[in-house]
Design a protein around this nucleic acid. Sequence first.
DNA 1: GTCTATAGTGAGATAGAC
DNA 2: GTCTATCTCACTATAGAC
Lengths: 187, 187
Amino acid sequence: MSTSERLIESTRELLWERGYVGTSPKAIQQRAGAGQGSMYHHFSGKPDLALAAIRRTAEEMRAKAEEQFSGPGTALERISAYLLRERDVLRGCPVGRLTQDPDVVADPALRAPVDETFAWVRSRLAELLTEGCERGELDAALDPEATASTVVAVLQGGYVLARAAGSSEPYEQAVQGVLGLLRQQAR
Amino acid sequence: MSTSERLIESTRELLWERGYVGTSPKAIQQRAGAGQGSMYHHFSGKPDLALAAIRRTAEEMRAKAEEQFSGPGTALERISAYLLRERDVLRGCPVGRLTQDPDVVADPALRAPVDETFAWVRSRLAELLTEGCERGELDAALDPEATASTVVAVLQGGYVLARAAGSSEPYEQAVQGVLGLLRQQAR
DNA sequence: GTCTATAGTGAGATAGAC
DNA sequence: GTCTATCTCACTATAGAC
């Protein structure tokens, strides 16, 4: 792997573990096995490197989600697959985490990939829910946009509860809870 | 207000805005209008002061929630009141935010108030849901513990979506979505 | 109780040799 | 492209005067 690649990957890991404020150029360099000069040759500074890392992480999250969204089964089955996909719960969401970083939210360039990713996931879920309603698999009274936001929020909030508890249990409860509510729409 | 009180209040604000890693003793002192000596006289250091601040914030969050939990109306009406309570959405949850701070999660003393607060809220919501089922207001098939976690997760995840979007809209959608699903349980 | 002085460490970046 | 040296500033805390 090239030095530039190693720098981006190290930044991705550190942003996930410690966030933007908690990640120093020095720590990135050490993890990547690169010197200061190397980093500043390839990137203009910490924000530039973070942008590359965030964009890649956001892209990866969308690709993983699309695997379930475009998978087999009814709308509800694909949403269930998305909700039940194995996740590193206690590490949290590498994208959602960034919303708690004031320096990321304050910088439009850094926030953009985060914003776009959640907007895309919500929109894809709303499409699936609309499809489920049209095919009569789900109650027509269901609001696709609102419910899509609920589904994503359950995951993001599930991470919060799990990290607070030091256990993935509340995450799994939250997922089972919303699945239970959704199944009632399929009667 | 005493110097000690001003230090705690300043720390609460900064922890909310910038998190534990992003909050420096210097910034706390400046906001409180106190010198270094003052801070280290009243508190042993940043972790000690943060503990006092976090405990108070957690206590306040429980008190506010209990206002809706013990209010008038059916179980579903009280849960709706909790979900629809006015919140400073774009600022996020001052307690949930701490779960993204590696130094808070790693320190059992700092994590404890966060853990206890969410455990308490989930437990209170589960009680309300159980009550709703027993009184026949809600479908008996509903799982109170799981659904309680879902409700809290929707709020915490709603904050995440709102901060990502730079708008409270997805938060409000997520809340409306889960309320819609819950109302179907009351048919 | 509160202040200023001081100190050791790390953040974030630049300069210039190789 | 990569390295080391260097710079400035902030972080976190201690010491000791008032």
